[in-house]
Design a protein around this nucleic acid. Structure first.
Lengths: 136, 136
DNA sequence: TTCGTTATTGCAAATGCTTGCAATAACGAA
DNA sequence: TTCGTTATTGCAAGCATTTGCAATAACGAA
């Protein structure tokens, strides 16, 4: 997978640095979304010289390259995850319980919006809020 | 409208302060979404003692009370606007252009998710990202 | 009106995130 | 392998946002 990535980046004129690899590996192992701060903490233990600035820049870079998905959770904190399986979240605003839903659920909506507005929607992570069955 | 608001807040044990009124008035006049910094700058000219902290706290407070809508624009900056009519936003991740879409567009999705998961979804503001026709 | 309770503010410090710039190191070419 | 170009990093300074705490002032009750 890294080889494949290296190719992909080099082809576009970018470089595969140890920092980028480390950060990608962290997110891969987590298999879940992480905030920039969480990524920084985990990455730092394996790479002591690493700075926050680099983490923020790298996450944003990997997102622009389509390698990571970005999403907002709660009241506006950005989180990232590897763009392997696309999904979204339903979060209960009372108990905080979260439920994962597949992207299929959104496809109709996305297609309709695309037709109506001309926007090509990103397949980025979306969080919807509500009340779970228990809290209603 | 302020009278109506005052009632609404007092009934819940909160207070209607000049700061809250000023901020609400700014957003009303703007008729569009503003960032906390923009609100601060405009409000400060009418109310020199006002601090940033108060602006941030007030915006977040008014949002929790359902009086303002919050949304993310561009790469994660929060913006607020008065919650007059329920709607959502499509934002171009390249040029930042934003497009308003009515809540009707979401209704199908919400009903389907409700049926499948039991969640009663809030009618809160949602921001979707993509590429506008020009930037594609 | 006056007074007491307590939500709200201002201040200042802390945390989160971004950016400019010089030094470093990937990577292709020789 | 070695070298040059230039993308990328680290550092440090600069914004953006949040939070603790004491002082202030809204609002109901007397």
């Amino acid at each position: 997978m890294p080889d494949h990535l290296a190719e992909q980046l080099r082809a576009r004129g970018y470089r595969l640095t140890p920092q980028r690899l480390a950060i990608l590996r962290i997110l891969n192992e987590a298999g879940d979304h992480l905030s920039p701060v969480e990524v920084f903490e985990r990455a730092r233990s394996k790479m002591p010289g690493l700075t926050e600035a680099t983490v923020y820049r790298t996450l944003s870079f990997l997102h622009r390259q389509g390698i990571l998905l970005a999403g907002h959770i709660g009241s506006g904190n950005l989180v990232y995850e590897v763009a392997s399986h696309l999904h979204h979240h339903l979060i209960c605003r009372d108990c905080g319980e979260s439920l994962e839903i597949g992207h299929e659920a959104m496809e109709d909506l996305y297609q309709r919006l695309n037709k109506e507005t001309g926007f090509a929607l990103d397949e980025s992570h979306v969080t919807l809020f509500g009340l779970c069955p228990v809290c209603q």
